[in-house]
Design a protein around this nucleic acid. Structure first.
Lengths: 136, 136
DNA sequence: TAAACTTTGCAATGGCATTGCACTCCTTAA
DNA sequence: TTAAGGAGTGCAATGCCATTGCAAAGTTTA
């Protein structure tokens, strides 16, 4: 009998350690993008570098993606199950300037524009800043 | 008789000092977004904090905008003459992962998507990574 | 010309990401 | 069952970049 978290890790070929299960659970519960710092304070007694390496492992196995929201700290958010972090998996992120929380807007796909001649896109990062629905 | 650089500074109500004229000229010549470091190495003998404050002054007066291209360093690019850095002035930026240069695609406007209910956009940062026309 | 203000340069400081190293834990093979 | 090897973790740096305090130099103004 395995938990949902264990399944998710095994699906991405990540060995489920205690730390990894906790970090994954944390990301699942929060349902938004979290910085290393935000995760660290949620577990009083875990080491930052361990969490960092946990997230790195997650990222390398397409379990989370990194988001640069201009806040100074990189944020991490869960990928969809079938995500391989390719251009078509990219989606808009929303940073609320009031509560400072960052959300994945997975249902709001990025319209990829026509680029000037000779430019080829491999990755897109579309960030919108504003006020989120709970802060309105 | 004033130079083009002096005019630009005066139009934005920035007092034209020697340093400011040089930094502005540098940005005009390069025609792309430059980091503090990139600017610093172009002037062997200028202090980084002075350039930093120069760029800060430029930004506060809508002469340049800051771009977070995920490279770790903030980049600065010239605004259009009538820019007030509002949502409608935002445009796509392109980071070439080969030459590491960042360009403003001013002719490629950002399509602002419909956001979920209750979300309000104030600012957009749309970054595309890929290969630029000179690196193809 | 002196006072007030602005700009500049130097030398910190601080935040965050990242890494080296040693210790612990877990797995595996004899 | 135990020893060896590898993976994961914690602690303590390190490094990079943005930012600021302070004093000197330059500029403006009364």
């Amino acid at each position: 009998m395995s938990t949902l978290q264990e399944e998710k890790l095994e699906n991405k070929n990540i060995k489920p350690t205690a730390m990894r299960l906790l970090v994954l659970q944390c990301l699942m519960e929060q349902n938004r993008a979290l910085s290393l710092n935000e995760i660290e304070v949620l577990f009083e007694n875990a080491d930052k570098s361990t969490i960092f390496r946990t997230l790195k492992t997650f990222q390398e196995n397409y379990l989370v993606h990194r988001i640069n929201d201009g806040s100074g700290a990189i944020k991490y958010a869960l990928c969809d199950d079938d995500c391989i972090c390719s251009l078509k998996d990219n989606h808009i992120h929303f940073l609320c300037t009031k509560c400072e929380k960052t959300y994945c807007l997975k249902d709001t796909p990025i319209a990829t524009p026509t680029l000037p001649n000779g430019f080829k896109a491999n990755f897109a990062n579309y960030l919108i800043e504003g006020i989120c629905s709970t802060c309105t």
